[in-house]
Nucleic acid binder design. Structure first.
Lengths: 138, 138
DNA sequence: GACGTCGTAACCATTTCTGTTACATCAAAT
DNA sequence: ATTTGATGTAACAGAAATGGTTACGACGTC
């Protein structure tokens, strides 16, 4: 999630400066301080969600598919974190116990409501917001 | 989190039926379908948070330290999950890049606000609520 | 056809999570 | 005082997730 947002924020800043608006995974990786393959993997998820687009061939690379003002962190989250944050039992509980049988759907509903509230907060922040508030430190 | 809530819910149901209101980690482990040591570890965190109490010696065990109506899932979460759910960069980003230098505090603030919203939802649900809504399935 | 980049598989190291064994500690019951 | 039955905790093992690396085929521009 953090790497994805970092990449999009960096693209929102840098892409407009390029004549074709295209950057490479290696350039993004340099800012994130990681391997280009890691960036390509994450940007692949963002592309599947329609947030960025990739070009192949000579002079290939990545560009934003939508305006940074229209990409919320909720969008990023949905593209990168498909699973629920709070998990149920790792191994199924004892089916002979009424509490163990009945509790999973109750917890799932509570968790989903809580995570939904979290996503609503993320929906209120856009990549453009993050790019604007990001100022170089000392 | 799920095991902790399961344990508390089970205790809220079972403890009142016991003359001294005490249950053992082994009994809880049987419902959760895990090892008693796992239960003791988690209940240890809940005890540090003042949600349950433990007794040692002969006939020892655990009991709720507060009424189930007064224990919210926010309390449980705080006792069991001390770290933020959404993490920042695993390895520090490239300090030579302005975006990389400036983005961590911005994201941390957004994440904290989102997680705070999630915790607020958890605060609205108590162990007593979960115990009441938990009905044995088919 | 050469070049530069994506796309993806394969692999490794590290960490995290669960579960397990083992044992010292403690206080009630006898 | 001894026995008993449980907690408290360290140590360990296995599985799974995570992050990073190498390698290489696919692709489209030059």
């Amino acid at each position: 999630m953090t790497v994805a947002t970092h990449a999009l924020t960096w693209m929102a800043r840098v892409c407009p400066k390029r004549p074709d608006g295209i950057v490479t995974s290696e350039q993004i990786a340099d800012s994130v301080n990681t391997n280009p393959v890691v960036i390509r993997r994450i940007l692949g998820s963002l592309r599947d969600a329609g947030l960025v687009a990739s070009q192949r061939g000579h002079g290939a690379g990545w560009r934003l598919a939508r305006a940074p003002e229209s990409i919320s962190l909720r969008d990023v989250y949905g593209a990168v974190e498909p699973d629920p944050l709070i998990a149920l039992h790792a191994t199924p509980p004892n089916q002979k116990c009424p509490v163990a049988r009945g509790i999973p759907p109750v917890l799932r509903e509570v968790y989903d409501r809580a995570e939904g509230s979290m996503k609503a907060e993320l929906a209120a922040v856009t990549v453009a917001d993050v790019a604007r508030e990001t100022v170089p430190g000392p």
